[in-house]
C-alpha cells in the first residue's frame, strides 16, 4: 500500500492556540508560554485511520502547516494554503472577534482550495463553562449549513487535550474522500 500524505493547515487569528493544538496533537504536550509563530511551522504525524480489528491499516501522513496567525496588520498569506486538502480553522472562545473572523478564514480557504475539508475548532474551551461551550458550538453549527465541506465544529482545549485527537482524525478521514 502506498503512502498517503496530506497537507492540512491551521488557520485563525493570532494567539487562538493553533500551535498549541498541533503541539498537543503531535507531541501530546502543552505549554502556557505564548510564542508567536513566524511564517510557517511544519509538523508531521502519521495517523492510523484503522477502525476496528478487521479493517486494513490506513496510514495517512499529515503534514500540518501551522500558519502565522492573522493579526490586525497582517493577513494570512494565501500561498501557504495552496494544496491543502484540509484545514482546521481555530477560534478562541474567550475572544469574540476571533470567532467573528471564522467566516473570513473559511472564505479564504475555500477560495484557494475549493475541494478542501474544514473543521472548526473553538479552542480554549477549558476556560469557559460547559454550558457556554455547548451554546457556542451550537451557534457555530450554522457554518456546516453554509459550507458543505465544513465537517464539524469542535470545542477543543489544547490544555486539557479535549477533542484534539478526534478533530485531527476526523479531518484525516474526511480528506481521503474526494469532494
Amino acid at each position: 500500500m502506498g503512502k498517503i500524505s496530506k497537507k492540512i493547515c491551521l488557520i485563525g487569528d493570532f494567539s487562538v492556540g493553533k500551535t498549541s493544538l498541533i503541539r498537543r496533537f503531535v507531541d501530546d504536550q502543552f505549554s502556557d508560554e505564548y510564542l508567536s509563530t513566524v511564517g510557517v511551522k511544519l509538523s508531521r504525524k502519521v495517523v492510523n485511520l484503522k477502525q476496528g480489528e478487521k479493517e486494513e491499516e490506513k496510514l495517512v501522513e499529515l503534514l500540518i502547516w501551522d500558519i502565522e496567525g492573522q493579526t490586525q496588520f497582517k493577513s494570512i498569506a494565501p500561498a501557504y494554503l495552496q494544496g491543502a486538502k484540509g484545514a482546521i480553522i481555530v477560534a478562541d472562545v474567550k475572544r469574540q472577534e476571533t470567532m467573528e473572523h471564522l467566516r473570513d478564514h473559511l472564505d479564504l480557504f475555500f477560495k484557494i482550495n475549493p475541494k478542501g475539508w474544514v473543521i472548526i475548532a473553538l479552542n480554549k474551551s477549558d476556560l469557559i463553562s460547559e454550558e457556554k461551550v455547548l451554546q457556542l458550538s451550537h451557534s457555530n453549527n450554522q457554518f456546516q449549513a453554509d459550507y458543505p465541506q465544513v465537517i464539524a465544529t469542535y470545542a477543543t482545549s489544547a490544555k486539557t487535550g479535549k477533542d484534539v485527537n478526534d478533530l485531527f482524525h476526523e479531518l484525516a478521514a474526511s480528506m481521503l474522500v474526494a469532494v
Binding site: 497537507k7 510557517v40 511544519l42 508531521r44 503534514l63 502547516w65 494544496g83 491543502a84 486538502k85
Partner: peptide, 27 residues
C-alpha cells in the same frame, strides 16, 4: 501542497525527512 511526489535518497548515513523538507522548501 509541498507534498513529495517522488524521492531518491542514495543510501547515505542520514535520511532526510522528505515531506517535512519538501513542505519547508515549499513554504
Amino acid at each position: 501542497s509541498g507534498l513529495v511526489i517522488s524521492e531518491i535518497q542514495p543510501a547515505l548515513e542520514q535520511r532526510l525527512e522528505s515531506n517535512m523538507l519538501a513542505g519547508m522548501l515549499t513554504a
